[in-house]
Amino acid sequence: MNKVLILFAHPALEKSQVNVQLMRAVRNLPGVTFHDLYEAYPQLLIDVKREQRLVEEHDIVIFQHPFYWYSSPSILKEWQDLVLEYGYAYGKGGVAFKGKYLMNAITTGGPKEAYRAEGHNRFTIRQFLTPFDQTANLCNMIYLAPFVIHRSLFIVTEAQCAPFADEFVRTIEALRDGTLDLEAARKAERINDLLPARTLDFKAATR
């Protein structure tokens, strides 16, 4: 069993139904620690020692956030700036996070087709996430393909959110229980695609 740490960052959660639903779905899962950064540090003053200890105590770290400007909300950047110290997380003697997994779980307004060379965002999601990928690499961590929900602006009602929440829960559980092929997860475009098919009675609002 892997211990999973979800670092959640959303500065205006009241505006995002899908993120509220995702949060509710995973918040109380056994073996999962859900850590709401903007709520823990409303004035953005991050407790570095506490954050480092949290990561040390877990095997898989997930940054869950809206895909603001092809990246994360600012507190996650601040978190990386402060928590990933030289000599601790990287550089000489910096092996505290060695062998742990890192993954982004993002919601984005754009459809899947927009994230390719011909699409209007011109790059793939994984290309946009390169900085996270390399950050993990520098910290001796293993970077996994992201969990992505597209067209999130239109996932509003509880019914619309439910299949995505379910997909997220299954991803987290698979990571926790070690039932996911992690080698494949490193190379995939989206980790969602690796989940075993599951017939559901939900009326999916989008593809």
């Binding site: 500065p11 959660l13 823990a40 004035q43």
Partner: peptide
């Protein structure tokens, strides 16, 4: 005021 806002359920960073 900040603490009161949080206690009635406003998100911390937003209250800030």
């Amino acid at each position: 005021a900040f603490q009161a806002l949080r206690l009635v359920g406003v998100r911390g960073h937003h209250a800030h």
